[in-house]
């Protein structure tokens, strides 16, 4: 008997008591992820807040700042990015809009080595979704965000948000994301609660997170 059959057999045996037959509640939910068919029929009380709610950009800014991200608002991304990075070098993903890039000291990731990425002073990316209530940005490794390693090794991450990417709550963000892509949810710079259960910023991930909230020119 394989371990797979053994474990599944044990589970079926454990559940075989008459009052614990698998639920056969009909499927009433809509497809929960883009391109996926509903496969798990669930009768779950979902009377928590869901569905579209008005987005409060000021709340997003407040929550980002509360977790020690630095927020900029403006229309000229390349100018703001240059102010942040100063004389330092930036790495950027291959699909970043060219007009966002500060011309000098910018290297596009067409297969940079880990050492080359780690040597950069900062990284400039777009994002997929942001959540106002929690101050979270989510990257999904699209061409304007790049491979996961790109936004991980430099000590400074500059992330550009378009207003239409911001949602109010976690359920709205989950509904917008595609789980087939590698996802990174980021809420403030790298931090730890491991010393006396207090939040301290700055461990292994980028110690500086700057968010540029794009505004119409």
């Amino acid at each position: 008997m394989s371990s797979r059959d053994l474990v599944l057999g044990r589970i079926r045996e454990a559940l075989s008591a008459p009052d614990t037959q698998p639920s056969s509640v009909p499927d009433t939910r809509a497809s929960s992820a883009p391109g996926l068919s509903r496969s798990a029929a669930v009768d779950i009380p979902r009377d928590y807040r869901r569905g579209p709610a008005p987005v409060d950009l000021d709340l997003l800014v407040e929550r980002l700042v509360d977790y020690k991200a630095v927020v900029h608002r403006g229309s000229d991304i390349s100018v703001i990015a240059r102010e942040i990075i100063g004389d330092g070098t930036l790495v950027v993903p291959p699909g970043l809009p060219p007009e966002w890039m500060p011309a000098e000291q910018t290297r596009v990731d067409h297969g940079l080595s880990a050492a080359e990425i780690a040597a950069a002073d900062g990284v400039l990316t777009a994002a997929a979704v942001a959540i106002a209530e929690t101050g979270t940005i989510v990257l999904d490794a699209s061409p304007d965000q790049g491979r996961r390693i790109l936004s991980l090794l430099p000590d400074l991450h500059i992330c550009v948000l378009r207003p239409e990417q911001v949602v109010a709550s976690v359920p709205e963000a989950v509904a917008r994301l595609d789980p087939a892509r590698p996802l990174t949810w980021i809420s403030g710079p790298s931090a730890t609660s491991d010393i006396e259960l207090n939040r301290v910023e700055g461990v292994h991930g980028p110690r500086n997170l700057h968010v540029i909230l794009q505004e119409a020119a």
Partner: peptide
């Protein structure tokens, strides 16, 4: 289901480290 993360990703950080959201989720 994928959608079910909308529940657990709200419950876990607030109950565990007392944060609205933990710094990183992969």
């Amino acid at each position: 289901a994928w959608q079910d993360l909308e529940v657990f990703l709200q419950l876990l950080p607030r109950a565990s480290t007392g944060e609205r959201m933990n710094p990183y989720t992969s």
